[in-house]
Design a protein around this nucleic acid. Sequence first.
DNA 1: GACATATCGGTACAGATGTACCGATCATTG
DNA 2: CAATGATCGGTACATCTGTACCGATATGTC
Lengths: 204, 204
Amino acid sequence: MATSSTSRPTPDAPRPRGAARREALLAAVLKIVAEVGPDAVTHRRVAEVAGLPLASTTYWFDSKEHLLTAALELAAERDTARLLEYGAEMEQSGTDPLDAVVGAITECDDGSQANRGSLIATFALLLEAARRPALQQIAQRWTEVYLLTLSRLLERAGSAHARQDAELLLGATDGLLLEQLASGTIEDLSPRLRRLAAALVAQP
Amino acid sequence: MATSSTSRPTPDAPRPRGAARREALLAAVLKIVAEVGPDAVTHRRVAEVAGLPLASTTYWFDSKEHLLTAALELAAERDTARLLEYGAEMEQSGTDPLDAVVGAITECDDGSQANRGSLIATFALLLEAARRPALQQIAQRWTEVYLLTLSRLLERAGSAHARQDAELLLGATDGLLLEQLASGTIEDLSPRLRRLAAALVAQP
DNA sequence: GACATATCGGTACAGATGTACCGATCATTG
DNA sequence: CAATGATCGGTACATCTGTACCGATATGTC
């Protein structure tokens, strides 16, 4: 057995031999979620997309549930890592804080056709969290990292209620993105978010 | 055959005999989506939840796809009807426009435990629309009704860019609700939305 | 009343599904 | 080198899936 509890091999360990397979399987899960939906994630399809035998899915992941959980974890980790890096970058360079705020959001979550798939996957997995307590912790940490980064930038931009403003800004972004996905429209959100950020910062 | 094209019997018609069954099936779909997820919507489960024989599902709906589409349509229709009513009410009574704006949103989409289920169903179906063009039209009309109602109220409240503000406000609401669902937290969004609305209206 | 049609309920079936199992192969340790 | 355990790949199986079918019943029209 390679993994009994949730995602044992990845975190620390000196990377077991088949770790590449594990990652290929997770990548396949995310791809399928994005292109077809979470209900299309079956052992056979995951194996096929990853180019691996069926049994590899049950070897590396105890169950389908585990497969989905690990995939959300991976997506969240990647996203937060990218965001933290971006945040540090913006704090060092002298970029206009308001630009940095909008950039921090649109950088990761732009509505481009290329990212549309992974965006759908993200929302789908977030929604899964609404029903599985095990995933809620991941979702919490995820939004927490976003809020921390945003509120720090907002503070530099002169916001008197940086935390509250960050919450509203992040919420607006997620909501607008979801609406765009649902209605099939594609527009640049930057101007709107900039207007929102400006309005919030100007508020005493 | 009772229904060949998408949702024939419901719109006008003198209500065919088995309409009650049709509605019971749709209600069952929404219930399942809310409690377990869209992938749990199977003919057998729908029939069981609705207390009807299996064959009734294939009789009233051509396919599983049709079943889901009709369910989204129903949810959207109910919601928009309620919103339009609320909007008209607020315009007649002399309610403070800003209160009305926040009320229009929280009235329908409060985060109470009772509504949590239907809220999850709504988001799940919205996400389905991201992948099925047939649903995008419904999603578009849905958000359009919201934007129209909100922007009218915002105009009365003195907003110089009512339409833009409505978009941001609606986006923020959806996003915050989704984040709450995903992280398992339950808080009253009214104060935050009120602050947002005020900030937007104050912006020249 | 009789007839056509809508509705109903039970069942059948081919295919997909999650997962268990088992023997082969590989890397690593002693 | 031997041996031990991780890794692999193929297959089996009970169950669930969507949907088709068919005979029975209810309803409305002449």
